[in-house]
Design a protein around this nucleic acid. Sequence first.
DNA 1: TTGTGATCATCT
DNA 2: AGATGATCACAA
Length: 225
Amino acid sequence: MTERWPAPPSSEAELLSRARSLAGRTLGEIAAQMHVTLPANLLRHKGVIGESIERALGASGGSRPEPDLPALGIEIKTIPVDANGKPRESTYLCVVPHGDQHSLSWRDSLVYRKLARVLWVPIESAHGVELKDRRVGQAILWSPTAEEEQQLRTDWEELMEQLALGQTDSVRGVQGTWLQIRPKAAHGRARTAGHDAEGAPTATLPRGFYLRATFTSRLLNRVCL
DNA sequence: TTGTGATCATCT
DNA sequence: AGATGATCACAA
């Protein structure tokens, strides 16, 4: 099974080379070459595009809380864009941690480790276009600028402080300039371990960190300027 | 059960 | 329309 997929790329150059070979092709063509069948739509297969592209590029497709290519420290993100190249959705990063994160620094956080180096793979996903006919765009290998990192860090620290205060359930998606926290669960009744202001254990809705589309739109456009 | 892959669907 | 909150599948 695994033989039909490439081994992890050994360098950024090799990763970019593979990504370039995917650009302009449809998801149907790529799936056929990998001998996988695409579902009719994303309704019950929301992750199928991301998983397919990861495998095509040589990532394991696992669900470990670390970058997709651990040896290179690179995270692979497919991003649905409209005809103008504008992101149609926000980008999920990782789960919101629970427990004592008091001593965790920004640079040691999973949010930073995943954002330090990202291969963004745009997928032209106009509404109504069948999955197999959607095209892969030109991928870009990106790292946050100093300015971007500072703002992301500010968002992260403000949100983490609110979590540390036991106010997880009062966190709203409107918070954060570029980084936000939103629910990330199988359903509304899902619960995970949390804690209140006194540190006593509570059950809370699982949440995740997301990048706003306003942010990804800027970084995707940057290469065109 | 948790974390990853995300998009769906309702509200503003 | 755009953003927020809700939801679906799968691997380990």
